[in-house]
Amino acid sequence: MYNEKVMDHFEHPRNQGVIEDANGTGEVGNAQCGDIMKIYLKVEDDVITDVRFQTFGCGAAVASSSMATEMIKGKTLAEAWDLSNKAVAEALEGLPPQKLHCSVLAEESIHAAINDYRVKHGLEAWEEKGGHAEHQH
């Protein structure tokens, strides 16, 4: 059901774990709907120098977390903010249609972590552009 790229990121997740001294964290989803994703950011001079994740979810959720963290590492916050779930799914060479919502979680948790950093540093939280598919289970 998953392609080899997805399976590779699922089985060998990049950047999995915790950053003890993270300066931005974001958690989305809830146990009720099943998926929870937590992102830890280490930001220096507006650049993401390190990123880690924890995920409670399916193969697609884990693979999306892994891919998304790879894609934002070394990027500026603005660049990371622009990473869409579609880009993550594309980088994974496609997800099954009923699993696209799992990649939304990656996008949303990164947004949450970025805004956490911004608010902690006295900056205004960025607004979601909207138009995302409702995440539903």
Binding site: Y2, M7, F10, E11, G34, D35, F56, G57, C58, G59, A61, V62
Partner: peptide, 14 residues
């Protein structure tokens, strides 16, 4: 507790 079944299946499958 604390984990999700589809991931369990995928890893067991391997």
């Amino acid at each position: 507790a604390y984990i999700e079944g589809e991931s369990i299946l995928l890893l067991l499958n391997r």
